[in-house]
């Protein structure tokens, strides 16, 4: 329960940092909300998208499919893998080990810092 709560907190920190970055960067609120929602959904599903892109059903030997798989892998490097955060199984089945929670904390720290720095970058460029 404690680890699950900690994981939820890490996830919320990331989403809050993302929302802060979008509020600073986008002039209007609707594009900011849309970006946050789209980013969250993509970051949540990026593992499944990677599996689909590398699926043996798509003839992985063809260069077009290999290119798509590389592009998706490249995109995954730019996103936090939110699919690993806050799984319900930690709540009802088994507790995670410390390494799993530690990797989530590290991910939150690094990606949160990226978003804060990006937000600061945009903030300094604004003529207030």
């Amino acid at each position: 329960m404690a680890w699950w709560t900690a994981s939820l907190a890490f996830e919320l920190i990331l989403v809050a940092a993302l929302a802060l970055f979008c509020v600073i960067t986008f002039v209007q609120i609707m594009p900011a909300i849309s970006f946050v929602v789209a980013f969250y959904l993509l970051a949540r599903g990026i593992s499944a998208v990677r599996l689909l892109a590398a699926s043996p059903l798509l003839s992985p030997a063809e260069w077009t499919n290999r290119t798509v798989a590389w592009l998706v892998d490249g995109l995954a490097w730019l996103l936090p893998d939110l699919g690993r955060f806050t799984p319900t199984s930690w709540l009802v089945d088994q507790s995670p080990d410390f390494a799993a929670v530690g990797s989530l904390a590290l991910q939150s720290l690094i990606y949160g810092a990226v978003l804060v720095c990006a937000g600061l970058y945009d903030l300094y460029r604004k003529s207030l």
Partner: peptide, 30 residues
Amino acid sequence: MSERPSAMVPRIVRVLLVLFFAAQIVLASV
């Protein structure tokens, strides 16, 4: 709203942005 040039951003922010972004890519690749 007009924007100020990138040179107005403090150097430490730019350096940290690049460093943390590189750390994210390293973390994702491992």
